[in-house]
Design a protein around this nucleic acid. Structure first.
Lengths: 224, 224, 224, 224
DNA sequence: CATGAATGAGCTTTCATTCAT
DNA sequence: CATGAATGAAAGCTCATTCAT
């Protein structure tokens, strides 16, 4: 998939852009829209605000997008791609299970609790009721992606006999949630105003890995 | 508390309402507002829509609330109270640790994944960036409440020697997250269109309890 | 006229008030209305404001007046009577022409440049375009009254041979205007934020009398 | 000044208008606003009314003005300039004092008693309480201007020995008021529904000049 | 293609007025 | 008679969108 992106960038553009349109300007608009919408939310951000922030005229926006909603869809797509890219080399590198999961968990929490990702989540969740497909797509191509990396990893390690997991998908979810226990939800609500400290992250992820391995490592069960 | 409400309704009214205002009408407005705002979000729901849905005139809304934002705050307060009431008898009843947690976990997931709660979360998260205090209050008096019940429970059981937990608060968060692993986040985004089935809930909560006890029960550690 | 008012107060009331209405409450309403409307103008003053200021309920206002405009008419009538009462003993007392005019001029200027009178003028002039009869009546029964006193006085003095005036009415206007030269118009526009000082009044009125007598005193034309 | 206006219109525009705005449309809006506000007063004239009268959409008004009050300020400024322009060549032409004052007085009264000027005065006086700076500016740059011309004229004639005036500014006010004695105030209140007839004007101004010269001409005091 | 002036529908809010209590 | 909750029309203003330049 990443290969395709690199090999056929113009082909991709031609799918979305009418002849004569400038990809750079589209990006510029999306960037401005991202800033304004992150700050104010979809409804409260006016096209005027977006145009001003992006440094283009209002009319230009309607050249690249058919309307505010279309712009928003484009933005969410773009944001999702940008934010959730590269989580996974971590898990494919060689190493012990716990070590790999510690490393991945840290990355995951840091990413998800970062300001841009939290803001994007807020916006997306805020409109999920009105624009269901958008929410679904965001989740599937965003959150699920991380889980899938984990699923693959766990499956490999189960096959290797390093883990004993009946429902790998559930286990992947469990690990993700454990990693962000007490962090991500509080971030969403603003109860945690800043991204958590490295210490907090490390401690939480360590606890997650410990609990996860305690339950899913074969020898642990044996001992019980 | 419900007793008080029945015994001293007027005393309660005088705390919050201007003289002569009708608590029933206030509730009627909040109800309509809740339906519309749940469906459309805060910004997209116009005062007109709310008035129509509530069956009152626009002007009346401004008798009971100083503005749209005030109405919204009232709604969130009301909603929070209504939604997060009674989670906890579960944990205070006698019984084995695992049994109690299973019971509580089921209730928690059922509650949080219900349509009204998910919608309220969406709305609240959607405006958390613009109205930070509101988001914080919602979390503190809502989500934290459930966690606190769990903290108390765990503390008791630790004292009783039934559990061995260093960081009780973290453990409480971990259990909550484990219970909703793969359920609540998907609900928020609409990836799960309906509340999860009883089977899904039971399975997930059972897995959560197992993993939790595996890690935090003293004898388990002894075996490790 | 003042005699009638004192002799038949209830008869007067019965002309305006429906059975059972309370003249004191009517006055109370008008007082509040006067304060608010003076401050904000007719349109900007809401019936709510007036009710609050008067210390009565909105509904009560509609018992005593058929609507906002009716209330305003009543207020203007009342205000006119109250403000322009007693200007004239001054002129009917014995004394030299100049002496009497000095005395009257001072009173006139002090009255017209006072805050309440200026405010009433502003309000009345502000609505004169939309409510022409009201403006006419205000002028006729207000401003004209002062002029008439002067007309009577001048006529007497002309008959006594102390003055030589062809157009007495014009002369009366001239004297009034001279007395307020540089004062009243500036007050209307707020260019003079406070009523003029006694010194300013005295100086202006003195100059008015001098100029007036210089022109209209028979002997002056020869003697001075 | 008029020369500059004709020579550098665009330079002027750039001082007041945002880039790209059309001065003609601005003028069109002000014209409509002037008609409606003259007729109804500031508060009673709605932005809707103004838009309709001006033949533009409501939104357009908010492109040229930041709000109703800003529009009103612009209107008053514009109106003042337009209405009070050119009063004065009259006084600077050669001729005898009385002749010049007759001529100027006639112009002054005709101008001030005209419908547009009376209406503008009504509007301005009507809001003077709520918008004090606006009233002050209107008076200073409007009414004072006429007085200043007169002050200059009188100063010259005093220097030339044709008049003997101690307080020139007071004298200027006196003459202005005398010219409008019995006319302008009645116009303000609508007691004079139409501008006064040429006869009335001539008679009043003639009487004003006579009285003024009677008092302020050096020889008159001895000779007449 | 880019612009931003123009639009009018729709926003939140306030108004004068009514009427059940 | 007095009240103030209720009304819905209309207020000032902003919006997403269009289109002549």
């Amino acid at each position: 998939m990443t290969t395709n992106e690199r090999v056929l960038p113009e082909a991709q553009c031609s799918l979305r852009l009418a002849a004569g349109q400038d990809p750079a300007k589209r990006a510029q608009i999306l960037e401005g829209a991202g800033r304004v919408i992150s700050r104010m939310g979809y409804d409260a951000a006016s096209v005027n605000d977006i145009a001003r922030e992006a440094g283009v005229s209002k009319g230009t926006i309607y050249v690249y997008f058919s309307g505010k909603e279309d712009l928003f869809e484009g933005l969410m797509e773009e944001t999702r791609e940008r934010l959730f890219r590269e989580l996974g080399d971590e898990l494919q590198r060689p190493g012990q299970v716990g070590e790999r999961m510690l490393s991945y968990g840290g990355r995951l929490v840091r990413k998800l609790c970062s300001d841009p990702v939290v803001q994007a989540h807020r916006v997306m969740i805020g409109v999920a009721e009105r624009m269901p497909e958008l929410g679904v797509r965001f989740y599937e191509r965003g959150a699920t992606r991380g889980t899938q990396l984990l699923v693959d990893f766990l499956t490999q390690r189960v096959a290797a006999g390093e883990l004993a997991i009946a429902d790998v998908r559930l286990a992947a979810s469990q690990f993700s949630e454990l990693c962000m226990a007490g962090l991500f939800r509080r971030r969403l609500f603003g109860h945690l105003a800043q991204p958590p400290s490295e210490d907090d992250i490390d401690r939480t992820v360590k606890a997650a890995v410990d609990m996860f391995l305690c339950f899913y490592q074969p020898q642990a069960h044996g001992a019980l």
